[in-house]
Amino acid sequence: MKRSKTMEFGVGLFMVAGILGLVFLGLRVSGLTFSAPSQSFQLEANFANIGSLKPRARVTMAGVTVGRVEAIELDTEWFDARVVLSLDSELEGQLSKDSIASILTAGLLGEQYIGLSVGGDPEMLEDGDTIRDTQSALVLEELIQQFVSNMASN
């Protein structure tokens, strides 16, 4: 009987360890947070070129992560990229209308993310608004082309 008790304990421990492992994977590895969806608000931004930006990419402000890219789709009216951002609800009503969203790259070949910087407009962005002022991704080929054509014209 005693042996069977320690065995039952072992199996219990095994299953608890499995659940803890899953929690670890969720929190530490996939960066899951327990914030409810109501605690975020959405903004939209149109970019002429998003480069290799992916859904779930970071949205930062002064280097601090404040949200994620929710969805990316083609705007068939203007033929540019419509990016839906999901931001911390703390920032709702805090960002001025003329805020700038730009696509930045971490390192030379790193992942791409969105950087926000605020402007000076007294009017603030609300849930569902669109950021007008955007800066597209730097595309390496275009940079090189520019450089080459500058050289040629000089």
């Binding site: 969720g26 590895v29 960066g31 899951l32």
Partner: peptide
């Protein structure tokens, strides 16, 4: 090491599908 991991691993798509 950790932040790149967190940025790229999706709970449902990666961990969920693995499970």
């Amino acid at each position: 090491y950790w932040s790149n991991m967190q940025a790229s691993v999706a709970f449902v798509d990666d961990i969920g599908n693995g499970m």
